[in-house]
């Protein structure tokens, strides 16, 4: 519980679950949810390095705060795009979003 490796493996497992969800999901909202999981794994990594290795334990916390801000912006944009895609296709199935296909 008190070693760097535990937290890094936890973050790697969470990131793997996010990658699997991103590849396996076909709905846009499900993919957005998986991306949030991956961002959280990155945050855990920052906080673990911050706790065990960094010279100044404040910098990792500040970076985690920035990641949260970016994630909030990304969720807002992604949700509005999903609503727009849904209005024009009447579906959020990613495999039907093929309007640009030649």
């Amino acid at each position: 519980m008190n070693s760097l490796h535990t937290y890094l493996v936890v973050a790697a497992l969470l990131f793997t679950l996010g990658v699997f969800g991103l590849l396996q999901r076909r709905s846009l909202i499900g993919m957005l949810i998986s991306i949030e999981l991956m961002l959280n794994a990155a945050s855990i990594n920052f906080m673990a390095f911050n706790r065990f290795l960094a010279p100044d334990p404040l910098i990792g916390q500040i970076y985690t705060l920035f990641i949260m801000g970016i994630a909030a912006a990304e969720a807002a944009i992604a949700l509005s795009i999903i609503v727009a895609v849904f209005r024009s296709l009447s579906s959020i199935d990613i495999e039907r979003a093929q309007k640009l296909r030649g």
Partner: peptide
């Protein structure tokens, strides 16, 4: 995400844990 906030608590930062719950 609540669980991740708990992990942050174990990493010694209650402030970030609260922010995680609040923002995420």
């Amino acid at each position: 995400l609540t669980g991740v906030a708990g992990v942050f608590l174990y990493l010694g930062s209650p402030f970030i844990a609260l922010m995680e719950i609040l923002i995420y």
